[in-house]
């Protein structure tokens, strides 16, 4: 019961955090110097037209009132109107969010599947030359700029070999009845492959290193020694006993990784012309479209905070397992 209570407190704290992030966002965009609409006021506009535009976006109101309007709108799921597209920000963001999520989750699933297996294997091969050679390589993948990796993959597999398309989520003019039909089509998957691999190569390092280190811990435990005494083969010991126990903490890191990955998407989506939230954010910032940039930023922040909460929850559930080690 106390665990439930502490979780409740944590949830409230994070709600407070969300409010703080929302406020920081508001101030960050409103307190920037210059007229926020400057980029959208055509030189040929008359003074009345300029004023009408400013009124239309509520920028003639005092700051505190703008703030409360903004909060009130947010509570109703309203993210305001884009300066550039003149249409509701929420509409665009909901359309782009699935593309970003599918890229994020597919790359993380690949990264974790590979990282967990390779981490267990490296723990098993501890002290060998293989391990000595593999570790620096793994660390180097963490040191790669993701966009650069994307550029290299693009240059080789798309421009040189022509195995994969250069960008977008699907071939020109193709349409599908549902998102599910789209996401399971070979058309979509071939477009997904390169950006997904780019992100996966970058993110496999964390589960791999975590898994390896947990495995090494677990394998020193008594029950492993027992299993060995019982005469099980070393590999069976690693898989059947070691991996299972080492796995849970690795899985909790998945939630945190989702948050980090969303941020990495920002650059990779730009390299692969992927129509997601990250590219939208970059475009909006470059075009000084504050409401849109604010909306995209907020959406990413919400996912990050939600994932932090989920990670907290998982940790507290798995607490005995962790303290046991």
């Amino acid at each position: 019961m106390s665990k439930f209570k502490s979780f409740l407190i944590r949830t409230l704290q994070l709600a407070l955090v969300l409010w703080a992030v929302v406020t920081i966002l508001f101030l960050m965009f409103r307190l920037m110097p210059g007229n926020p609409l400057a980029a959208y006021i055509d030189p040929t506009f008359t003074a009345e037209q300029q004023e009408a535009l400013i009124r239309q976006f509520g920028l003639d109101q005092p700051l505190w009132r703008q703030y409360f309007t903004y909060l009130a709108n947010l509570l109703q799921g309203e993210l305001g109107y884009s300066f550039r597209y003149r249409t509701p920000v929420a509409d665009r963001i909901w359309l782009l969010l699935p593309n970003t999520l599918i890229l994020t989750f597919s790359s993380l699933i690949v990264a974790y599947a590979f990282g967990i297996l390779a981490g267990a294997w490296l723990a098993w091969r501890r002290g060998t030359r293989t391990e000595a050679a593999a570790l620096p390589v793994v660390l180097a993948t963490r040191a790669m700029p993701e966009f650069w990796l994307g550029m290299v993959l693009l240059a080789i597999f798309s421009f040189s070999l022509g195995w994969f398309p250069a960008g977008g989520t699907r071939s020109a003019g193709t349409s599908y009845d549902s998102l599910w039909a789209l996401y399971t089509s070979s058309n979509f998957l071939s477009h997904l492959f390169l950006p997904m691999m780019t992100l996966a190569i970058y993110s496999q390092g964390l589960p791999l290193l975590l898994m390896r280190s947990n495995m090494l811990d677990v394998m020193k435990e008594d029950f492993i020694t027992m299993a060995k005494i019982k005469g099980l083969s070393p590999f069976a010991v690693v898989i059947r006993h070691g991996a299972r126990n080492a796995l849970l903490p690795v899985m909790t890191s998945f939630a945190i990784s989702v948050g980090y990955q969303l941020q990495g998407n920002v650059v990779v989506e730009s390299v692969f012309s992927w129509p997601g939230l990250g590219r939208e954010l970059v475009n909006a910032v470059a075009a000084s479209d504050y409401p849109l940039a604010q909306g995209a930023f907020l959406m990413i922040a919400v996912v990050v905070i939600a994932m932090n909460l989920l990670a907290d929850l998982l940790y507290s559930i798995l607490d005995p397992r962790i303290s046991h080690a």
């Binding site: 693009l154 798309s158 421009f159 960008g167 071939s171 020109a172 003019g173 012309s273 129509p275």
Partner: peptide
């Protein structure tokens, strides 16, 4: 039959797509 406008943010990708027939 159709006119399809693809939004490709950079020249690099646009040229690659032209060569692969994506545009």
């Amino acid at each position: 039959e159709r006119f399809i406008l693809r939004l490709v943010p950079n020249a690099e990708a646009a040229l690659g797509m032209l060569r692969s027939g994506e545009i």
